[in-house]
Amino acid sequence: MNITLFTRFMPILLVAGQVVAAATPTTHKHTAGAAYTVSLDENDDTPYKTLSFTGINLVRAQTSGGGLTVEGGAGPGVKVEMFIRGNNGNGNLSKDEIEDRLKDYEIYIRQEGSTVVAVAKQRGSFNWNWKRGLSISFKFTTPRNMATNISTSGGGIKMSHLTGKQRFETSGGGITLVDLKGDIEGNTSGGGIKLTECRDRVVVETSGGSIDASNSSGNLKMHTSGGGIRISNLNGMINVETSGGSINGDRIDGELNASTSGGGIHIRDMAGSIEAETSAGSVEVNFTRVDKYVKLETSAGSVRVQMPMDKGMSLDLSGSRVSAPLNNFSGSAERDRIVGKTNGGGIPVVLSATAGSVSINQQ
């Protein structure tokens, strides 16, 4: 396709994948896989550069100092926008300052077969002057059916309205996921994770923030080492784990595995099966339906459960004090231990509190 490159002020050109300065404003005609315009508007909402591509099914991006955004659901083509601002507290830089600092970066945006590749990285870390640093972000507008493989060392990641295989990673920001379907996997070392309306397989991890997941279904796995977890309106196989916070949830349907080393576990409107464990808090679960199993444990708190007991259950309850309705029960019941069957036995119900009480359907 024919491409037109428009420039003004002191523009940048892509030459063999490198960014160089042009001496005077010019208009160039090329035959290649993309078309772009260059703008040096100091408004942060205005892209520094915009390119368009066709025949793309994978987005691959890397930036060392900014965020990454991928929005699906558009037409057949892919639009790439690059945004530049100072990362030393000065967001508005003159065109001369930007051009001077860009000499310290390797930047290219190009098409490689059916993949669009966008890279912005420092040329070298030796004697790097952070005062000259830039925050270089990319925004991709794509068709809904689009795979990604993106990473950033200095910003957040936002992804929405995509179907396919998604891989993403950031060392310095949060992650926001909206309306994704497919094989989804990503992590952050420096921020929280928020996801909603995600389906199929979702695996996310953070070392430094909380996790908030809602209105999603499938095989969902979420882990954080430094915050709490909030889940609501989830359906499927759900695995959540935190080393530094509590777990709170409501309207969960399916099988839930939840564990924390630093807080309580509180689940409302649980329909299905659950295995939950904490080392430093209480466990409270309110069931609307019990399916295959219930296993709740704590080392430093109590276990309190509200649940229908019309099905056959095999009870193993232990704590400093144990209380439960024992209708149609056979087995042994003591102050600190109940072991036996209700309604002939069936669903295993194991509740254990090392240093607290255990109760079922007690006010």
Rank of each mutant, 00 (worst) to 15 (best):
G344I: 06
T141M: 13
L234T: 08
V119K: 13
R268L: 14
A120V: 08
H28L: 15
T142D: 00
R123M: 12
M159N: 02
T46E: 14
T24G: 02
G191S: 07
N145T: 08
T63I: 04
V15I: 13
G262L: 10
F9Q: 08
I274L: 09
E42V: 10
L14D: 13
G249L: 01
R85A: 10
T26Y: 03
T206M: 10
N239D: 15
Q62R: 15
A333P: 00
V20Q: 06
A74N: 14
G254R: 08
V322E: 00
S246M: 11
V350W: 01
V78F: 04
I175K: 04
G264C: 10
T4H: 03
G133K: 07
I56G: 02
T54V: 05
G346R: 09
H28M: 14
L40I: 01
G155N: 05
G124C: 07
N92D: 05
P308T: 01
S39I: 02
G77F: 01
Q18N: 12
S210N: 11
F168I: 05
R268H: 07
I84T: 07
D250R: 15
S207G: 14
N215F: 12
N57S: 13
T163A: 12
T242L: 08
E81K: 15
A32P: 01
I56K: 01
E334W: 09
P143Y: 05
V80D: 04
V20C: 01
Y36K: 10
E185Q: 14
G113H: 10
A21K: 14
